[in-house]
Amino acid sequence: MGLPRVSILATTEEAAPAKRAEDKVSDTFLQKLKGFSSDDLFEFLATSIGSLVLVILIVTSVVLTRGSLAVFGKFGFGFLTGTDWNTSLGSESYGALPYILGTLVTAGIAISVGILISLGIAIFLSEMAPSFLRSPLSQVIELLAAVPSVIYGFWGLFVFRFWVRDYLETPLSTYLGWIPAFHGTATGYDILTAGLVLSIMIIPTVSSVSKETMMAVPSSQREAAYSIGATRWEVVKLGVLRYGRSGIFGAAILGLGRAVGETMAVTMVIGGTPGPYVLPTSLLKGGVTLSSLIATEFGDATGIHLSALFGLGIVLFLFALVINVFARLMVWRVFKVTGGIVE
């Protein structure tokens, strides 16, 4: 790519002064425009559209920072560690800790459950499924990504919640209730349900990216494993999962990103009200996440309350950035260790 572009630039640079000397007087706008080749125009358009990404990122950070200045000015670092959420005028007090933790816990459940199911699907599709099944099944799974999140929320609220309550939470609280994480009454309207609904929502992303990674693993790796007497599962483990682990890790991070930011479905099933009580000490408790709190209170928030919501927004924004940067670093590190890939 580099070489032809350089040569094009070189010729236009050489041609430009000559042209300018020729029609110094009639240097109209149109002629100036003619001096540009269509390549220059394309480069200008592509560059400006490309830099839009950066502009959007900067504008978002500026807006979020400006909006949250008031709340950070009043509560300082305490906004991140506080647990109160009092909106009544005069005695206002805002702390984001329960919602930060709520987000982390639900996303954590989502990714740990979701990655297992997704890997199972990806392994089946790339290693086991007969070719006539592979394509239609992949399509169906990718279709799941197109289901609006409010639909997942409805299903979670009216169907899935009761399954979780009856088959998972009731036994958990009955037999393992002495563990703080399972303390409480089984209602199905809590952090566990939200996490599990999220885990289903991230399956399309995680499984299809993992599947692509696995299918890109050269068959020579599978043969290597077969030739030393590996069983089918061992072939997947030695030849496929290890080789594709950076891609699979990337898929998991993509899923985590979605789980952290997902709003609607979580808001519908997580069932907590803001305040110190929703600190996620137990999975069987109602919770509130950063995004669900913003969504529920944004409509009628003013003043410092609005600023507090902006504060939650900036935390969420930073989460997303950190997750992505971390993912990149991990992927780079993996590549550095293996020193690239033999092909």
């Binding site: 290597a224 030739s227 030393i228 030695l238 993996v334």
Partner: peptide, 27 residues
């Protein structure tokens, strides 16, 4: 059968994510 009859392929195909030691010890 494959444990009794080993095989080496046309293109070298070590496991790239494993160390030299682990490659040999894999089987």
């Amino acid at each position: 059968v494959r444990r009794k009859i080993g095989m080496v392929f046309q293109k070298p195909n070590p496991f790239p994510t494993m160390s030299v030691y682990d490659n040999v010890a894999a089987g």
